[in-house]
Write a protein that binds this DNA or RNA. Structure first.
Lengths: 161, 161
DNA sequence: CTAATTACGGATAACAAATATCCGTAATAC
DNA sequence: GTATTACGGATATTTGTTATCCGTAATTAG
């Protein structure tokens, strides 16, 4: 039960995009290099973000990605679900129907009680991710990461113009 | 990001075991037949429960599984973790270390801010599962499943003595 | 206009994890 | 002794993750 590593990549990339100067884009190639990731595969994750409307893209030289919404509007859940999908972690196979003691034809009135509990837990997980915005992440990072690193990263990005 | 189907199986089996008459065991073979599951593979899940101390086993004829603790003491989380393991869904790869703008040698003072948020969500998920006991599940099932089905299942089990 | 750069999508391959199946061993009830 | 049971190791099958490659279309710089 692991999230795809693409989820981690997407979160880090969004954090970078949130810190980008106004009007600036960053190409998948640069995002990959900045994080030490395979460019082609990272692109797939970015495409998921694009399809979800979280990032906007521009083609051609000087093109690339930028946030499509304010960092305050984008939540961890938005990013996670864009990449990982919206399925529950618990996939109920309705094995209760295999019980030979059940009437074959009878319609189930409620979802399985086990599945309900598991789905509530999934919802609690999502709830928590919904409560943290990209803006809050950026703020935390700004507080915790040494200024020198932040500045050098900004320069590194500026040099890619 | 799916839980193993063994998790579902284990939960259903525990529900059955919780309803077993005092001193009675149920063999993997019967649990498998009752749920329409592959016996050998279901056994692996039951072995995980056994190793976690949630169920007790007896060898030989009339042997099999029973709960090792009161149904009130066993939580959903106990069962889920016994089968699925205790790892977080988010496995931080520390890709921030790949950033060429970071000093190579410097020790990270804190876990990655992204990982912290993701792990909090995992903990919220676990919290929810910790709050529901096997006893509560049995009570819900007793309320929702038609009496006739419960009785026939009890008879089916009794016939396996 | 041309050439370089970019995102995007489809096809495919490599690898890991989940889902089994098989069988030998030891313990236990009758 | 014989049948039954859980257990653990070995192995196969299937599915999902992690890539890689390449052609297409859009865009910009010169």
């Amino acid at each position: 039960m692991n999230l795809k590593s693409q989820v981690e990549w997407a979160l880090h990339c969004c954090a970078i995009l949130a810190g980008l100067p106004e009007g600036r884009h960053l190409a998948a190639k640069d995002l990959a290099e900045l994080h030490g990731l395979p460019k082609e595969y990272l692109s797939k994750a970015m495409q998921s973000l694009s399809q979800a409307g979280l990032v906007a893209t521009t083609l051609g030289p000087q093109g690339g990605y930028r946030l499509a919404q304010a960092a305050e509007k984008i939540t961890f859940l938005d990013i996670v679900e864009a990449v990982e999908g919206r399925r529950n972690t618990f996939a109920c196979q309705e094995i209760r129907k295999n019980n030979p003691c059940r009437p074959a034809k009878q319609r189930e009135t409620k979802p399985c009680a086990i599945a309900r509990v598991m789905w509530e837990a999934d919802e609690a997980w999502r709830d928590r991710l919904r409560r943290v915005s990209l803006a809050e992440l950026v703020e935390t990072v700004g507080r915790e990461v040494p200024k020198a690193v932040l500045e050098r990263t900004a320069e590194w990005i500026a040099a890619r113009s």
